[in-house]
Structures are given as structure tokens and as C-alpha cells.
């Protein structure tokens, strides 16, 4: 039975080519991922270094003379309430991102659990979860968020914003992840797992979830992006945390003070550029993750 003359078909397990080299090669094939990570890293650097070199207490009103155009002392200029805009951006960007991440994670977290349960067990449970998600998706989200935000009498904190946005953020992930799980659950290896004695929850965690990690990653980034957008939308309308120097609130003050008409260009340039970088970064990251998740999109070397 043994053929000593036949060499093993597969090369013995030698060390893989350097991980860094492999990563760089992949980067060339997946430029979106590189651009996305790069942009987000740049923002992190901006906030990180900013914290060190800039006094964030100057993000409060009356910290500096009002309406100064950009200068050496105030590189981003100041606004009408006397906020140092550079400090505002350094302090506000992480707050906006935090809302997005909390809401995004909550949304996808809840959504995944509901999706896995609905798709694996099917039946009445699936019908209920799907029904609620479908109805929820038809209602205009911003409208619901506005109503919720308006009905909260006290002024909002940043974390409360996150929870409000999260209340709707789970709807779409539930549907999309459910669809993915539905296809996976028909795979033969799930049947083999069942025949090998695995229980339902075990199959969900051990067999289905690992194969969905790239997809969950892409969905998460997408959810974060949507959450940030929703929160900025609410803030621009004045329904956000009034005292916080978030990006959206800055834009609210821009609107309130008619900065556009008055020609105080530095006031609205800074937040818009940063918002643009955030969204571009998240977008390219999504595209890059999508390519990992969906091998059919993979481009040639």
C-alpha cells in the first residue's frame, strides 16, 4: 500500500514567505483596503498627536478671540463663540467616531444574534424577526430618530446619542446577515456537523460564524459609517448633544450663525474636510473588506 518512491504531493510545512512581504503583496492586489486603512490611520494620528500638542480645553466657548481667520496661533481659526477650531476638531472627531462605533457595534451585535437565530432555526421565530425588521426598514429612519431625540427633554450626552442611533442600526444588518446565514446553513458541512453530534448553538458558533467573519467585518464598517451619518444628521438639525464639540454640532453652529453667507470659510472647511476623510476612509475600508469576503470580486494579481 505504501509507495516509498512516491514523494508527498504537498511540500512539507516550511515557513511561509515573510508575513510582511505577503501583506504588502496583498496590498497591491487590494488597493482599496490600503487606502481605507491609510485614511483612518491618518485621522487617528491627527487626533493622537493633536491631544499632545493642542490644549483641548480651548474647544470650549470663550477660549479665544472670536472669528479669527487661520493664523499661526490658531491654525484652523476660531468661531463666533470663541472656540479654537483646531482644538474643537481634535476634541470632537473622536466623539463623533465614538458615537459611530458604539452604534455600529451595538447594531451589528444585536443584528447578528437575531440573524443567526432566525436563519438557523427558521419557522415562527424567523417569521417574527423578519417581520419586525421588514416593517422597521420601511419606516423612514431619520424621522424616527428625530422623534426620539425630540422627546428626550434633558440635553443629550454623546453616549445617549449612540444608543438612539443604535435603536435603528440593527435592522439592516439583521436582514443581510440572515441572508448570508441562510445560504451557509444548506452547506453539506453543516449537515456533517449535525450528524457528528453538534447541537444547534454549537453549529452556529463553531461552523457558521467563522465563515462569516469577513462579511461581518464589512457589515460592521458599513454600520459604523451609517451611524456616523445619522448622528451628524441629527446634530446638524440641533438635536444632538449641545455642549459637545462633535463634528455635527460644529456644523450646526455654522448653520445657526450663517457662516457660509458671512464668509467665515475656515469655520465650515475644517469639519467638512474631516467628515469627508472619515467617510472616504470607511468607504474604502468597506470595499477592501468586501473583496476579502467575496472571493469572486477578487482581482487578478
Amino acid at each position: 500500500m505504501d509507495h516509498a518512491s512516491a514523494p508527498p504531493r504537498i511540500a512539507p510545512r516550511v515557513a511561509q514567505p515573510g508575513r510582511l512581504a505577503a501583506a504588502m503583496r496583498y496590498g497591491r492586489r487590494n488597493p482599496s483596503l490600503v487606502v481605507g486603512i491609510g485614511l483612518l490611520l491618518a485621522l487617528v494620528l491627527f487626533v493622537g498627536l493633536g491631544r499632545v500638542f493642542v490644549d483641548t480645553s480651548k474647544a470650549r466657548p470663550l477660549s479665544a478671540p472670536a472669528l479669527q481667520s487661520p493664523s499661526l496661533e490658531y491654525p484652523f481659526g476660531t468661531d463666533r463663540q470663541g472656540r479654537d477650531l483646531l482644538a474643537t476638531m481634535v476634541a470632537g472627531t473622536p466623539l463623533t467616531l465614538r458615537i459611530g462605533f458604539i452604534a455600529g457595534f451595538l447594531g451589528v451585535g444585536i443584528g447578528s444574534i437575531l440573524a443567526f437565530v432566525a436563519a438557523y432555526y427558521r419557522g415562527a421565530l424567523d417569521a417574527v424577526i423578519r417581520g419586525i425588521a421588514d416593517i422597521g426598514l420601511t419606516v423612514p429612519g431619520l424621522l424616527v430618530l428625530i422623534i426620539i431625540a425630540v422627546s428626550i427633554k434633558e440635553s443629550l450626552t454623546v453616549d445617549q446619542m449612540a444608543v438612539i442611533v443604535a435603536s435603528l442600526a440593527w435592522l439592516n444588518p439583521t436582514r443581510t446577515i440572515r441572508a448570508q446565514v441562510l445560504t451557509l446553513r444548506e452547506r453539506s458541512y453543516v449537515e456533517v456537523a449535525r450528524l457528528s453530534g453538534m447541537s444547534g448553538p454549537e453549529i452556529i458558533v463553531k461552523e457558521l460564524m467563522p465563515n462569516l467573519l469577513p462579511y461581518l467585518g464589512a457589515t460592521l464598517v458599513n454600520a459604523v459609517s451609517n451611524a456616523i451619518l445619522a448622528s451628524i444628521g441629527l446634530e446638524v438639525l440641533g438635536l444632538g448633544p449641545i455642549e459637545a464639540p462633535t463634528l455635527g454640532m460644529t456644523l450646526y453652529w455654522v448653520n445657526y450663525n450663517a457662516a457660509l453667507i458671512n464668509g467665515w470659510w475656515w469655520w465650515w472647511t475644517a469639519p467638512i474636510v474631516i467628515i469627508l476623510l472619515v467617510f472616504l476612509g470607511l468607504f474604502f475600508l468597506t470595499v477592501g473588506l468586501d473583496e476579502i469576503a467575496n472571493p469572486r470580486l477578487r482581482r487578478a494579481a
Binding site: H3, S5, A6, P7, R9, I10, A11
Partner: peptide, 20 residues
Amino acid sequence: IPGLAPLLRDLPPGCAFHPR
């Protein structure tokens, strides 16, 4: 036929079938 077909990126020297 004993053995396996060779990996096309790692063909044996000489005749590709000689190991089998």
C-alpha cells in the same frame, strides 16, 4: 493509479509522470 497528480506549479524534473 497510486500517488497523486503533481502540482502544476511544482512539477517534478524530467517526465511529469515518473513519480507514479
